[in-house]
Write a protein that binds this DNA or RNA. Structure first.
Lengths: 116, 116
DNA sequence: CAGTATCCAAGACGATACTG
DNA sequence: CAGTATCGTCTTGGATACTG
């Protein structure tokens, strides 16, 4: 696993999904297309700037699709590309692992068993 | 997938492995225990400071184990904890995805098929 | 050999104001 | 509604020098 190609591949993935909000955005889009405002409401702590920026980067990487509806008021919908959909299993595995990790951390913090 | 627990779990994982060098370090340790110097040689671009720092963080998260051999010259060995070993499948999936992504990007860049 | 300590640069991120 | 533009901050990472 320490070979160069493997390491490079792993780093490539991290570059694509490494932004602070990208994984969360993808989680939302996994459930279906979302408008800009819907995404904002779903992530109360993100700023417009960051949302726009991260969406653009995901778009450039071919992960998501941006569709502008020419109408007033403006409407823009974001959705996963078929390619972006392949992130699904990655997301699931990351979530699985994170969940177990969180449980571990919680257990350490609680006084139920020995502390150290 | 857009539910809060799922999103939190995914973010938790990213926090643990999100450092610039952590995934690469993990790749090396997946092959077995390594000394500090071995890791450095395996990652020519990392500085001592960053290597030390990222190792400490991985240690704090319970992913890796640090063993100091009391001898001169000093010898310190890093290895995955059993828990850290559970990152293995994550690493593989990230590598798979990254490899495919890289192929995609390369194809776009090459003139073999239509350019836009 | 395996680190620390210090200082510095770059980039990521955020707050705010403005626009088609 | 869905952005852009600007500026400031904060975090991350890097260069260099020193140490048990």
């Amino acid at each position: 696993m320490g070979d160069q190609l493997f390491k490079d591949s792993v780093e490539t993935t991290l570059k694509v999904i490494g932004g602070k909000w990208k994984l969360v955005i993808l989680c939302h889009l996994m459930d279906g297309a979302r408008r800009f405002g819907e995404l904002r409401r779903g992530m109360p702590d993100i700023t417009q700037k960051m949302l726009t920026q991260q969406l653009r980067e995901l778009e450039e990487d071919g992960i998501i699709h941006r569709e502008v509806f020419m109408q007033v008021p403006p409407k823009v919908e974001y959705s996963l590309t078929p390619y972006g959909g392949t992130m699904g299993e990655v997301l699931h595995l990351l979530a699985d692992w994170g969940l177990k990790h969180q449980e571990r951390v919680d257990k350490e913090a609680s006084p139920t068993s020995s502390d150290h």
